[in-house]
Design a protein around this nucleic acid. Sequence first.
DNA 1: CCGCCCTAGGTTGCGGCGCAAGCTAGATGG
DNA 2: CCATCTAGCTTGCGCCGCAACCTAGGGCGG
Lengths: 112, 112
Amino acid sequence: MDQERRAQWLRGVLDLCVLALLRHRESYGYELAQSLNAAGVGPIQGGTLYPVLLRLQRTGLVAAQWREGAAGPARKYYRITPVGIETLHRTAVDWDAFTSGVGVILREVQTR
Amino acid sequence: MDQERRAQWLRGVLDLCVLALLRHRESYGYELAQSLNAAGVGPIQGGTLYPVLLRLQRTGLVAAQWREGAAGPARKYYRITPVGIETLHRTAVDWDAFTSGVGVILREVQTR
DNA sequence: CCGCCCTAGGTTGCGGCGCAAGCTAGATGG
DNA sequence: CCATCTAGCTTGCGCCGCAACCTAGGGCGG
């Protein structure tokens, strides 16, 4: 897949994906990057993910907490807030509406 | 819907939508803007659409032709090229894969 | 005749954000 | 002792939608 275009597509969805991953269980940056990659979103660079997490934290959609790891460096665990959950739900609905709108236009182009 | 976020989403999909609209029938900027709005993608500003059309023209995905209108200013008609059709098909498949990947992550968030 | 609105095209500057590249620092292993 | 992995963070670049603004033709009301 065209890498440059995927970057465009990630814009404005990546924070949603992070929120969705934090929906049920808290996590930290490094693990989130692995989860996103495993989910097929693609490899997310540190320089991409950490600013996202900082933005989410500053806007109050997630709460962060430093925790000492048994091995390795300390981890910064992120937990979704009620505001984050509400935002996630609302925006996910918008995303669905948008993609279905685009889908209507692109529909006959491909063999689904 | 959050306007800022919709702008992010439009990024990297708008040119695809334009190509898809030109798939069967040539058109011009102003009409394309109305078609996009009618299709539910949202109102597209001139300062957004015309640079898109120029990019598509420069990269050879569409061909342009000035034509005198019976009334009003002259129109610049755009027609999709074979390269444009091929690009449209290929990228539409990628888009489908990407949205379905994101969908997996967001799935349980909403009531579909 | 002048002002206003619609059509139709275009340019410019701003801002958001993913990314490449580079940094610190702890633990592990050759 | 240095390489590698884990874990976090910062900086500069580039893309692109958007607001704002401009040109220009035609129709209509005052």
